[in-house]
Design a protein around this nucleic acid. Structure first.
Lengths: 244, 244
DNA sequence: CGCCTGTTTGAGAAGACTCAAAACGGGTGG
DNA sequence: CCACCCGTTTTGAGTCTTCTCAAACAGGCG
């Protein structure tokens, strides 16, 4: 039977058409597709691990739990993302990876990542560019948490999630499922769940967003953009410098 | 005359001895060494720029300024760092880069970065691993700002700066010059300068640190580590997976 | 010596947190 | 099909950390 095309390939092709060789190299490097139900953990913080994962389907979040029990969600991962970045630099995971929805992931071993660098330099450079974009996006989140009030932080989060979902969805979306508890949302933006509840309520009252269960709709995009200065870091990536 | 060895080479060799070819490729890729006096800016947020920089000497910080005027310092850059990451993914800078001390930088053009991927895959993979480590370090800062109180945030910052300076210094140091105003420190950890002043004073009173002018000394490392759970992300990087 | 920038200190205000209880909602079993 | 249960969300009241505004203080440099 025809194997499904890797979500990583699909994502990368949004930025740059890949050669058949490059696609083959990626397909060959991915192994052991696995199904992870919502809520389950792929790896635990500080746990040994020398594998990266590629999300084929679904969402994850990466979190850190502090000695006192507080938790910070440092980022979300979506279909087409390379996950488990800390395993690149060490032999253990810096984060806990939790499935937000039902997911399918496949493995990419570190040696296979090395082979990609050797055999497909252009692909490697593209992965580097994507990583650079995500680095900048994390800087944006840092700025949001460090210097914005509760409502702006939440606005930023919603805009960020939507922008990234658009890459996977391959088009413009204005409403999306947000399968997160308010506790999760708070852990992502550095607020308590109580304050998240109040603030989301206030945003709804002001006509900025609408909620139906856990479906989120952005109503007043202009004002959300205005209050946050949000910039989409996922839509476009410069590939002109990649080696031939 | 013998050209000085690139600080990037020195830094990378802390993780992995480079081949002469790899060193040559880097040396050849770097151009136009420039001197930047303390306080001056190398590039402004949103400004067009298609160059990366390598810091040969000194410190920089990367900051974002919000419409309201608030500023967040997203990271510090030290000798041996590749700076201007956002130019990898786009043709403009996401941050303002400001020299904290008197600095020397050299340029690395994007096409030359591309050539490194093509000609020296192992070197490219090492750069990727270093970037991954810095990504994780930024996640730590995010956690610190999102989930810790004022004193822990400052403790985290001091431990982080010291850990990174150790890489450049090539050894253990317990005190270091911190040429930052309290405004800068606050912008890095998401506090006002007033609260930074109070909290640093309190840390001194508790015997955690000592200050002489802008020289900072860590007195009670054990307690600082204990209150923050700080992990050094710069000291060791796994290179076993790099292609031969 | 005086100026300018940066630091310290004080007092009051604001935003977010804690604790607590009530309302909601989806899923399960009777 | 209904009743119950558990996790989640909402609302309320009081507290605490951090912020704001303001003024005094310190230190380096012309």
């Amino acid at each position: 039977m025809a194997t499904r095309r890797s979500a990583l390939v699909t994502r990368l092709e949004r930025y740059l058409p890949l050669t058949p060789d490059e696609c083959d190299t990626l397909d060959w490097a991915e192994r052991r597709e696995r199904r992870i139900p919502a809520g389950e953990r792929l790896i635990e913080q500080d746990q040994t691990g020398t594998t990266l994962w590629i999300i084929q389907q679904g969402w994850f979040h990466a979190s850190t739990t502090l000695p006192g029990g507080a938790r910070q969600i440092t980022r979300f991962h979506y279909a087409g993302d390379l996950m488990g970045i800390s395993s690149i630099a060490w032999d253990w995971s810096a984060n806990t990876l939790t499935a937000v929805s039902d997911c399918i992931v496949s493995e990419l071993s570190k040696p296979n990542l090395g082979r990609i660098f050797k055999q497909q330099p252009r692909l490697a450079a593209l992965l580097y560019a994507v990583a650079a974009a995500e680095y900048v996006a994390m800087g944006d989140r840092l700025t949001s948490i460090g210097r914005m009030g509760a409502m702006e932080r939440l606005a930023m989060l919603l805009l960020d999630i939507r922008a990234r979902l658009r890459v996977t969805a391959g088009g413009v979306i204005d409403s999306f499922d947000l399968p997160l508890t308010q506790q999760d949302i708070g852990d992502a933006v550095g607020l308590t769940k109580v304050h998240v509840s109040r603030t989301l309520g206030e945003m709804e009252r002001q006509g900025l967003i609408a909620r139906t269960g856990r479906r989120m709709k952005i109503l007043d995009e202009a004002r959300l953009l205005d209050m946050t200065g949000f910039v989409d870091r996922y839509g476009v990536i410069d590939t002109s410098w990649l080696p031939g």
